[in-house]
């Protein structure tokens, strides 16, 4: 009997004005519409746990866009264009030479690559002359390894040329 009365008092003692800001903070903590991106090269980190809206990556299994709450996965990257759509609404594009993207639980994305530069750092003439050279080696009479390496270069350069257009 007395314990019931105590419970009712406790219920009344908690003002509603105190309860609502607590709820609001819990909601904002989740920030469920953002993905935390780390884009790292051996010599530089381009993004360091930065909240972004979306990241488009050229995976070997196909182009994919990664949003918040993506299913965890590991993707090998083709040499190609990574597009980052930032919180402010703008987007940035980087050409990566190949590596891995790891989608971790809790809306985290880590991309590791060997080289990565924004598109404006590339020289279209250098790409064109390298394509001509690589084609010569690929169809020449060199060793199997030389030809395979020329074909790897062609894959990179053609992807880069398409991105520069």
């Amino acid at each position: 009997m007395s314990s019931l009365r105590f419970a009712r008092v406790a219920l009344r003692a908690r003002p509603t004005a105190f309860r609502s800001p607590l709820q609001r903070r819990g909601y904002a903590d989740v920030a469920s519409d953002k993905i935390r991106l780390s884009l790292a090269l051996p010599h530089q980190s381009i993004y360091k746990s930065t909240d972004v809206i979306q990241v488009n990556i050229p995976a070997e299994s196909g182009e994919m866009g990664v949003l918040a709450n993506h299913v965890p996965s590991i993707e090998q990257l083709k040499p190609g264009l990574v597009e980052v759509i930032e919180e402010a609404g703008g987007s940035k594009q980087f050409f990566l030479s190949g590596g891995f993207a790891v989608v971790q639980p809790g809306s985290q994305l880590s991309i590791n690559a060997v080289e990565g530069f924004p598109l404006e750092d590339f020289n279209a003439d250098a790409v064109r002359s390298q394509i001509a050279e690589a084609q010569k080696i690929a169809s020449g009479s060199g060793s199997e390894q030389d030809k395979a390496e020329a074909n790897i270069e062609l894959e990179v350069l053609e992807s880069l040329q398409a991105a520069l257009k």
Binding site: G98, Q130, A148, E155
Partner: peptide, 25 residues
């Protein structure tokens, strides 16, 4: 295709990155 020529993933990445570096300004 490069795997058939005995090229390792490490070498593949090195060749791809070399092509990217040579394409810079």
């Amino acid at each position: 295709a490069w795997k058939a020529a005995g090229i390792t993933y490490n070498r593949y990445l090195a060749v791809a990155s070399r092509a990217v570096r040579r394409s810079l300004k």
